[in-house]
Amino acid sequence: MSDLIQLSEDERDCYQEITNVAMGQAADRLARLLGVYVVLPIPNVNLIEINEFKMTLKSLEGNSTVSAVCQGFIGAGIAGEALLIFNDASFAEIAKLLDYPGNLDQHEELEMLMDVANVLNGACIQGIGEQLDIDFSQSHPVILGQHCSIADLLEPNQSRWQRTMAIEINYTIEDHNINCDLLLLFTEDSVVHMNRLISFLMDD
């Protein structure tokens, strides 16, 4: 096992601020797409173990079922996954905003999920990349599950990693019942690398 990665208070603050700027850009894109105002939270930045991660996800889930999309990103020795989790109750609202007529079939929901994921993940990853001067390549978004429980999402992917840096952003939309969580997960090696990059931002 590798030495445990660490985050100092200043480093955490720096990631939080970088995320703050990136999620603002993402929110702006979503606001324009849906014609709404996106309420921006203070992002959470944490180093977490897989068990804690499961608890984090559980706490996001509440009682309802969710749909989730993940999208990998890689560049300059940094790799991670953006995981977007939608409360299923949000779908009908988004559909209304996007002028989908009537009840949604599964295919339309999928399309909508992909659209929103592309906007939010894409802008956020790009925004972080710009500030660190990295051109991230992004993989195609992959559906992890539709209308399932968080436990179902995690089951097949349990053993792949131990500890990660997680950035959690909870987007809500004003006056609409829409709620989604964007989790950015970085590999341990990436964090070592990124800590070096942000030291240039924090100095001088």
Binding site: N20, V21, G24, Q25, A27, D28, A31, Y37, L40
Partner: peptide
Amino acid sequence: VSGDIQPEAQERVKKLGAIDFIKKP
């Protein structure tokens, strides 16, 4: 001075009396 670059955010702060909006970074 904010990363929240939504046009709505800029309008709101000006209505609340801010003289201008500067985007981050």
